[in-house]
Design a protein around this nucleic acid. Sequence first.
RNA 1: GCGCCCUUCGUCUAGCGGUCUAGGACAUCGCCCUUUCACGGCGGAAACACGGGUUCGAUUCCCGUAGGGCGCGCCA
Length: 472
Amino acid sequence: MSLPVVTRFAPSPTGFLHIGGARTALFNWAYARGHGGRMLLRIEDTDRQRSTEPAIQAILEGLQWLGLDWDGEPLSQFARAARHRAIAEELLRRGRAYRCYCTADELEEMRERAAAAGLPPRYDGRWRDRPESEAPEGVAPAIRFKAPSEGETIIEDQVMGRVVFHNRELDDLIILRSDGTPTYNLAVVVDDHDMGVTHIIRGVDHLTNAARQSQIYEALDWPVPVMAHLPLIHGPDGAKLSKRHGALGVDAYRTMGYLPAAMRNYLARLGWSHGDDEIFSTEQLVRWFDLDHVGRSPARFDFAKLENLNGHYLRATPDDQLIAALVEFLPHVPGGAIMLARLDADALARLERLMPGLKERAKTLVELMESARFLVAGRPLAMDDKAQAILAGEGRQALKALLPVLEQAEWSAPALEAAVKSFAEARGLKLGKLAQPLRAALTGSSTSPGIFDVLAALGRQESLSRIGDQAV
RNA sequence: GCGCCCUUCGUCUAGCGGUCUAGGACAUCGCCCUUUCACGGCGGAAACACGGGUUCGAUUCCCGUAGGGCGCGCCA
């Protein structure tokens, strides 16, 4: 246990980095960083049909956005095919593997027969002890691992506990295809060994593989790494993650306006806990993260909680950093580019003044963007329904009456508030009666920060002309 | 079908035999704050799947049942 920790994240590049993969990466990362170890990245691209370069890029970018870095260069599993083949042959030499001359049709038939008999679809081992001399003409053999047929294989899982598999349940899996390329279970074992991986942290969907891989380690006389299998993440309805909810690429979460720090925090709490702590920094996560406190039951993805958490992070981010985050965010969201183009120095200065009020009201960068939009919006100003209603009746009258008062007022938030207040009192009106139409006229929205701050931030000329537009 | 895994408020979870009249967070409901919307504060409702054991004592340990998940490819 005194060995330096080496973890790895090993996605297959057949699509984007989904939320489950992101959490697996986060846990591997946190574990390695918290134990003075390294986290390696391996791209499991041995399936040439389904692996794509764009998918690799998407995964790398997803990790980067999440703020998860890895040590060394990403390793291509495919590039190591020769090494895998050599180990398959080594297994053959050791008598722990054999050539299988079954055809695809034959295997299909085998599965069908098993299904008909109500048996598990397993390879029956027909070439396990059959001499090579009986090999049929013209059939390229695959190499199968000679799995132990008796006894049991035990996984001492750091999360799931001691898991026992009866060896009779595990059939002889193919480790080298008839075209000479390695299959997953062989490649994983060889790579993890060669990379010096000490801790394998991955989803429970690999638990059965853990048993098969453990057998291969044993056949090779290699030490089995520490294993930890994480429960899966489900959608809000408890079923499998679908496109509709959680099975989105992490880039989708970026587009929805979530902050990487909030994502890390939220993902960490999905399946792992540190007492009653809910909001903690990434630094604390690294310090606290352990396998002991990873739960065993699957978790549902809850957008409401993510959103709440994101709101916390938004509010906690210093204004200048938040503006930087927003500026960086805009190109990734529909309509954002236009807004970015209009954010000149003047608008940025106004945004800075309003940020304390704006960020308190936003849960995502999208909401922040929407609430700041009036700063750069051209006229006529787009109005939300409530704002329109407010300006429909008395609101317009109030604005008209208010205009001369504002023209006379000293131009600062407190002074404007005082002026409007005394005007309201003189007329026996509630302040809200005047503030509401002002808000609507200036921002086109019924939800905005302190309206007097808005007035001050916009400036006398801009404000008066906007109010004038709406008052006529 | 077979194997493995899981099961505390609606959701994420704390709990590792007595401290549990089961704690926190999100969501929800009510009140307060307030120029709107939020934020914030206070308070409410809300859970140990079921049945057997083990034990002086089970949310915690064991076994069943039910429900859910994952796996069973010359995919990873």
